[in-house]
Design a protein around this nucleic acid. Structure first.
Lengths: 153, 153
DNA sequence: GTTTTTTATATCGTTCACGATGCAAAGATA
DNA sequence: TATCTTTGCATCGTGAACGATATAAAAAAC
């Protein structure tokens, strides 16, 4: 058995997992001031780009399952950030639209992207290296998404 | 307001968040076959490197809070993977040790690192690019860890 | 040696994340 | 038209994550 392979320091996934959690924590004070969580912020990003989308489209855009997104949207509806209405053409669809409050949040959070951008900057994360890092992660995401099954043991 | 900054495609954090989730999903079939979750696998990686550690050390190694790790360890104890005993020197500490079953899991999971390693390989993730990616993520983690507070709005 | 503070862990409540399952509307097929 | 299948969303149960709080032991201060 290759004990090297089990070293935590050799685990790419652990780094991604940790970096993701810590960066989400960096968002926390900025978002919680407005009663938002990070996944809720992601939903807002999707809806700010294009309002009035069915649950399915939002979930696909975030690579999440609808059973994750539905309760999230229900909480946001209770907060008055968005509204959910059955589609007129297709009554199975639940069309999610921003309320006035949801739209106003974009202005109130206008400093967030820049603030977080500054927070991550360090020796190897710079405006020059981010595009390359983005490309690698996009490649990885596309690859993992098409292969939901890992290799069999 | 800079609408560009709000585009989902410009969000590094979203990529990390997604890549982390999808890669964890890739581990799922390999681990669930042995009744493990990914965070539980991380605990095992820590204990396989060094057995009999207090909760605090395990949590710090994983950059997690103890109130996340404690219930995780309790579930693993119930599964018979590890045991938890009060420290003799310091009775506040809870020393976590692998059981025979916990040690045997390392052999049973010996193919996991290689299998997952193969799964992530793609155009921009190769044996050559991984060290560089690791370095960037390590840098980012170290940086975020020392700065728990994001910039004020 | 008693009080105070710190440290190590645990408990509680809320919010994801997701597999499994349920249900009703839409579409396909007979 | 009646039946079958698919699709879109919801519900349920389990396991993280984490802020807030609690508790007991150890260490420090008095």
């Amino acid at each position: 058995m290759d004990r090297e392979a089990f070293l935590l320091d050799n685990q790419l996934c652990f780094r991604l997992y940790t970096a993701s959690r810590l960066l989400t924590q960096a968002y926390h004070p900025l978002l919680s001031a407005h009663g938002l969580t990070y996944p809720q912020y992601l939903v807002l990003l999707v809806l700010w780009e294009k309002d009035a989308q069915p649950v399915n489209d939002i979930a696909r855009r975030l690579y999440l399952e609808t059973n994750t997104v539905t309760p999230l949207l229900q909480r946001m509806e209770k907060e008055g950030i968005l509204s959910r209405k059955r589609g007129r053409e297709d009554a199975r669809q639940m069309i999610v639209s921003l309320t006035k409050k949801g739209k106003q949040l974009q202005e109130q959070l206008s400093e967030v992207p820049h603030a977080v951008g500054c927070t991550v900057l360090c020796d190897s994360i710079t405006p020059e290296t981010v595009p390359g890092l983005n490309r690698m992660l996009d490649d990885m995401i596309a690859h993992l998404q098409t292969k939901p099954d890992a290799h069999e043991l």
